[in-house]
Deep mutational scan, measured.
Amino acid sequence: KSEISQVFEIALKRNLPVNFEVARESGPPHMKNFVTKVSVGEFVGEGEGKSKKISKKNAAIAVLEEL
C-alpha cells in the first residue's frame, strides 16, 4: 500500500480529518520544487519533492511517523 492510502486508512479508523495542500512552489518552471503539508487531526507532516506527487508522498511518510 502507498503511504498516502495508509494515512487515509489510519485517519478513517481514528475518525480524524485529512487535508493535503501544496504549501510552496519554488524554482524555475523547468525545475520546480514543491512542499506539501498534510494534517491528520492535530498531527502535521511536511514533504518536499521535485513534483507534487513526490512531495505528497514525503508528507504522508512524515505524518505516518507521528501517527
Rank of each mutant, 00 (worst) to 15 (best):
K1N: 12
K1C: 10
S2R: 06
S2Q: 07
S2W: 00
I4F: 04
I4W: 06
I4N: 04
Q6F: 02
Q6R: 11
Q6C: 07
Q6P: 02
V7D: 02
V7M: 07
V7S: 02
V7I: 08
V7P: 02
V7N: 02
F8R: 11
F8K: 10
F8I: 09
E9C: 07
E9A: 12
E9M: 07
E9H: 10
I10S: 04
A11F: 00
A11E: 01
A11I: 00
A11R: 01
L12S: 14
L12M: 14
K13D: 07
K13H: 10
K13I: 08
K13G: 07
K13S: 09
R14M: 14
R14K: 09
R14T: 06
R14A: 09
N15A: 09
N15I: 03
N15R: 10
N15C: 07
L16C: 04
L16H: 02
P17E: 12
P17D: 07
P17R: 13
P17G: 08
V18F: 01
N19W: 08
N19R: 15
N19A: 13
N19F: 12
N19M: 13
N19P: 02
F20T: 06
F20P: 02
F20G: 03
E21L: 10
E21W: 14
E21F: 12
E21Q: 14
V22H: 12
V22M: 12
V22P: 15
V22W: 06
V22Y: 11
A23Y: 12
A23H: 15
A23W: 10
A23D: 11
A23T: 14
R24G: 09
R24P: 13
R24F: 09
R24C: 13
E25R: 13
E25Q: 14
S26Y: 06
S26R: 07
G27D: 08
G27M: 06
G27F: 05
G27K: 09
P28L: 08
P28F: 06
P28K: 09
P28R: 10
P29V: 09
P29E: 13
H30T: 11
H30V: 06
H30K: 14
H30R: 12
H30W: 06
M31L: 11
M31Y: 12
M31P: 11
M31C: 15
M31R: 14
K32V: 12
K32Y: 09
K32G: 14
K32A: 13
K32E: 12
N33H: 14
N33T: 15
N33G: 08
F34V: 04
F34N: 05
F34G: 04
F34R: 01
F34K: 02
F34A: 05
F34I: 06
V35H: 14
V35D: 04
V35E: 06
V35A: 08
V35I: 15
T36R: 01
T36K: 02
T36A: 08
T36M: 01
K37D: 01
K37M: 08
K37L: 07
K37F: 03
V38D: 03
V38M: 08
V38I: 10
S39P: 02
S39T: 15
S39W: 11
V40I: 04
V40A: 04
G41Y: 00
G41S: 00
G41T: 00
E42T: 13
E42I: 06
E42V: 07
E42M: 11
F43K: 07
F43L: 11
F43T: 09
F43G: 03
F43N: 05
V44H: 11
G45L: 03
G45C: 13
G45Y: 05
G45W: 03
G45E: 05
E46I: 15
E46V: 15
E46L: 15
E46G: 05
E46C: 13
G47V: 01
G47R: 03
G47C: 00
G47S: 02
E48L: 13
E48N: 13
E48P: 01
E48H: 12
E48G: 07
E48S: 14
E48D: 05
G49I: 01
G49Y: 00
G49D: 04
G49L: 01
K50D: 10
K50G: 09
K50R: 14
K50E: 14
S51Y: 02
S51I: 00
S51A: 04
S51K: 06
S51F: 00
K52P: 09
K52R: 11
K52L: 08
K52Y: 07
K52N: 03
K52D: 03
K52I: 10
K53V: 09
K53H: 08
I54D: 13
S55Q: 01
S55D: 00
S55I: 02
S55C: 04
K56I: 11
K56P: 00
K56S: 02
K56H: 01
K56F: 05
N58D: 02
N58I: 03
A59G: 03
A59D: 02
A59R: 01
A59K: 02
A59H: 00
A60I: 05
A60Y: 05
A60R: 00
I61K: 13
I61N: 09
I61T: 07
A62F: 01
A62W: 00
A62L: 02
A62K: 14
V63S: 02
V63N: 04
V63R: 02
V63T: 03
V63D: 04
L64W: 02
L64E: 05
L64H: 03
E65C: 06
E65H: 12
E65G: 12
E65S: 14
E65D: 12
E66L: 15
E66W: 12
E66I: 15
E66M: 15
E66V: 15
L67N: 03
L67W: 05
